[in-house]
Design a protein around this nucleic acid. Structure first.
Lengths: 189, 189
DNA sequence: GTCTATAGCGGGATAGAC
DNA sequence: GTCTATCCCGCTATAGAC
């Protein structure tokens, strides 16, 4: 039942979860291996260096987001719905006490391998670009009101989300919904 | 010239900087020691366990914030000035490519010693409480406009700041000023 | 109060058998 | 493709000399 050959994918799945829980330095090959029921060295077979694993995680996330964007555009909903859908991406993270990718990679960022830094930066740019575009369309169409440029507002939105996922974990998980609601109420006309 | 007996304080200063750069797991006793020109073991003399060091850093930060609050209240400025002063606390962090305490402790939070978790939580509560109070006063006095409760808006403000310090480090440092400006413009009447 | 030395552990990574 | 075994490293922490 296709349980052969998908070890590589399962490693990625597990490593991703561990990354979102405690950052890139917060898990080891042994953690991944034992969660999978195999040994340390088998993981190295699929991803020789830890940076290979890290890069693969971020690249997959970027590909997923790319597909998500296409699908959202196809649906042709109004900007408010689209923004809510964007927030919805992060909701499962809150519910399982995890961080977003940006937040999980942020603290150890300066010590990350260069290729991971580049991918993480590109991911942030992906998110900001999509938000900027949406906010621009939304304001032009009369759905949103906010000061400054769409780019500036995009930075605020992404910062809030990344920040609140961290704060929610330390204090009250409902903080995420609070922030989403405040943002929606403050920019919707 | 008082260079005796202040090793303990200098350890705290250095460890604080290292914490803000790469989180609590991102530095070692050796890093602190070599920055100070002493040896590993001498640091352990002053702070036997690393959790002692971590707790001391957060507690000092909380005391400092407490004094800052008193001073700000004494000045009796209007709410806008006070909020700008709050943002000003974080400006030096941006300029030196550092994170805020909340952000630096967020990723490895679940693996922190329990006493550190408690202190970090209390620190977040300190910040949120002060912001809530300010936002409440500001709205009552006609200085601010925002939807929802002052507490809800306080969560948005703190999240944005914590988030943007991380995003600024990965992308553009000017993002911090952008977020501050957007927040001020969106809540000021 | 700082030093040298070392214990003990966990991490990333590799070699070679199966 | 997974295993056992191992290397080398850096980390926290301690013992005991000075």
């Amino acid at each position: 039942m296709a349980l052969q050959g998908d070890t590589k994918k399962r490693i990625l799945d597990i490593a991703e979860q561990l990354l979102l829980e405690g950052g890139f330095e917060g898990f080891s090959y042994k953690h991944v291996a034992s969660d999978l029921g195999i040994k340390n060295a088998a993981v190295h077979y699929h991803y020789p260096a830890k940076s290979d694993l890290g890069v693969a995680i971020i690249q997959r996330t970027r590909r997923r987001f790319g597909r998500w964007c296409e699908e959202i555009d196809k649906r042709g909903e109004d900007p408010s719905k689209k923004l809510e859908a964007f927030f919805g991406i992060f909701k499962p993270f809150v519910d399982s006490g995890k961080l977003c990718f940006g937040g999980a990679l942020a603290v150890g960022f300066k010590k990350l391998p260069a290729e991971m830094q580049a991918e993480a930066r590109a991911m942030a740019t992906d998110f900001l670009g999509w938000l900027e575009n949406l906010l621009h369309e939304g304001r032009s169409g009369g759905f949103f009101t906010f000061p400054g440029s769409p780019r500036d507002q995009a930075v605020v939105v992404l910062s809030s989300i990344q920040g609140v996922l961290q704060i929610a974990r330390e204090t009250d998980p409902s903080s995420f919904d609070v922030v989403v609601r405040q943002i929606m109420r403050s920019i919707r006309t």
